[in-house]
């Protein structure tokens, strides 16, 4: 998928573990793990807002668009 999730990078920059993030944003650690691996269908604005608030970043720091080579 051309949308890349950089949550693991932002967690590393903030020296935060997935468990702490999950507790602070109120979703399960399993869902944070799925989000990190990009195995989700979508992200709610509400979740994105909480992540940005906790990690003090912008949505663009977490989500990145990388065009698929095949689609060119």
């Amino acid at each position: 998928m051309p949308i890349i999730v950089n949550l693991d990078v932002m967690l590393a920059k903030n020296k935060m573990r997935s468990r702490e993030l999950s507790e602070r944003i109120g979703i399960t650690e399993q869902n944070v793990s799925l989000l990190k691996s990009g195995k989700v269908k979508g992200v709610r604005f509400e979740t994105l807002e909480k992540i940005c608030e906790v990690l003090k970043c912008q949505p663009g720091d977490i989500l990145e668009f990388e065009p698929d080579e095949k689609s060119d």
Binding site: I27, N31, V32, L34, L35, V40, G42, V43, R44
Partner: peptide, 8 residues
């Protein structure tokens, strides 16, 4: 519902 479960 299944699709919704995959939205975090």
């Amino acid at each position: 519902a299944e699709e919704n479960r995959r939205i975090v």
